[in-house]
Amino acid sequence: MTNNPNVALSVKDLKTYFYTNSRCNKAVNGVSFEIEKGKTLCIVGESGCGKSVTASTIMQLLPKLSRIEQGEITYHSDAGDISIEELEPNGRKMRSIRGSEIAMIFQDPMTALNPVYTIGFQIGESLKYHTDLDRKQIRTKTIELLRNMGISLPEMRIDDYPHTFSGGMRQRAMIAMAMSCNPKILIADEPTTALDVTIQSQIFELMEKLKTDHGTAIMLITHDMGVVAELADNVAVMYMGNIVEAGTVDQVLRNPVHPYTRALLDSIPVLGMGKDQIIEPIPGSTPDPYNRPIGCQFAPRCSYAVDACDVMPDESYIDKTHRVMCWRYQELLPNAKK
């Protein structure tokens, strides 16, 4: 890991386990990455691979039955580094970071807003707790935020309740809420999954604008490769709690090395390729998290699997930014270019 001054958040060997019925689910099992200022890191992977848990861990929003087992989450604030994993989850320090330094937007804007309070009240809450603004200033600022998010007539809509907003507008309001205190890092957990495609592109345009205007570091969780190609600067591919491959968007999408990344890309239909394109589904299904393969988690489904895969491979760096967790990456490297 480098000492790049542009890094806003670095996660090192993070492990988050869930404990249910005295069984342990290693939902995040040793994950390392960095989020840079003004850049978007996309975390991709299928359902249950640990994307959302990683996001909740950074925000310390984990449910009661889970805990950070090991690892470091370092937030590089203006006032020095803060080790998030050492903070009390709902303590004063963590609360002062949440919402003001690191903010989050969620998958379903329909349920993420409280139905009994106005949009203005809910955005104002962040400002009330993280800034010194008085009531009037909060209102002015909230109206300005809503206007910046492209909500028409914000002076009137500020006093409306969430149920009078459409899905796209609610997500805009959510983003307004998240951006109210100019956070250094924005974590977006599948922000457009519940929205239709036209609204999706508007929301992404908005996030792109925030990134360039405010230099916000964005961590975008998605399973949509199209979104990744369009928005990401860096990509991390997760499978069963590990980042199996990470690098810049060009490295991962154009020269995928890990068999899982390749399989994932092969399984996606490409618009414009016609009906004759070959779509290869990944054979098998994700293993039971309570009954995992011993070594490489992908080995049972992998067409390149060999005996060595019974041992968990290390992270290997192909170059400074591109890394992969596979024993056979050097063999796979030459034919990586498709």
Binding site: M59, L61, N90, M94, R95, S96, I97, R98, G99, S100, A103, M104, F106, D108, T111, A112, L113, N114, P115, E125, S126, Y129, H130, M174, M177
Partner: peptide
């Protein structure tokens, strides 16, 4: 409900 997590993600105190 989801809005409780949203509220928590805003850094509000638990009583609120």
């Amino acid at each position: 409900r989801d809005f409780i997590i949203t509220a928590r993600s805003k850094g509000l105190p638990e009583w609120r």
